[in-house]
Amino acid sequence: MIKRIDTYIVTDGNGQEAVNFYKNVFDAELVSLKLRGEMVPDCSEDRKHLVLNAQLVFDGLCLQISDENPDYTYQAGKNVVPTLIVDSVEMAKKLYAALSVDAKEIFMELQETFWTPAYANLVDKFGVVWQISAEVAES
């Protein structure tokens, strides 16, 4: 089942500033802030300050923020992404299979990452950038 659709904002190297700005704008609770330097092994010094993922919660909503991966070019207009948070790898596979039909671009095929058992990032046939992420309870 789809648990929720979060809004994901991708910033251009100023993620920590954006986190503080939106935290104040929405009077949000900062639930999580993970910097690239804390999470990525052998992270270079010039990338350690970049936000890998931050989560702000307010009014029952979740706003996620990260800096663009420095290996990619930041693109304004493609920096606000609906993110499907699902409760199983099976649902992630189903949504990925459907959204990837005639996809314009697949940034990351559905795969396990260090933060989730199933994650994908793609541009569907209508030019909408989507993220899919399984949020599975640990047993």
Rank of each mutant, 00 (worst) to 15 (best):
I2V: 15
S100E: 08
K3S: 07
Y96Q: 04
G15P: 07
Y8G: 03
I2R: 03
M91W: 00
V40C: 06
F58V: 01
S66Q: 08
S44C: 04
W130D: 06
K125Y: 12
D87G: 04
Y72G: 00
R47H: 14
A103Y: 08
V128T: 15
E38A: 10
E109P: 12
N79T: 04
S32C: 10
V19H: 10
E135M: 13
V128R: 09
K34R: 15
V123H: 07
A103S: 14
V81G: 01
D42C: 07
K3H: 04
V40Y: 10
D46N: 14
M91N: 10
D27V: 10
D27Q: 15
C62W: 00
F107H: 15
T73S: 13
P41A: 14
C43D: 05
K78Q: 14
T7H: 02
D42A: 14
L33C: 08
A120E: 06
N24S: 15
E138Q: 15
Y22W: 12
D12P: 02
Y96K: 05
R36K: 09
G127Y: 11
K93N: 11
E105I: 09
A134Y: 06
R47A: 09
Y74I: 02
M1W: 00
G37T: 05
S66H: 03
V89S: 04
I2Y: 04
I9Q: 04
D12R: 02
D87N: 13
K104N: 12
Q55Y: 02
N53R: 11
Y96M: 04
C62Q: 07
N121D: 15
S139R: 12
L50G: 01
N20V: 11
A92E: 03
K125W: 10
A54Y: 06
M91H: 10
C43L: 08
D6G: 00
G60E: 01
I106A: 09
P117Y: 00
P70T: 03
R47P: 00
V89N: 06
V51W: 02
Y8S: 07
F58K: 02
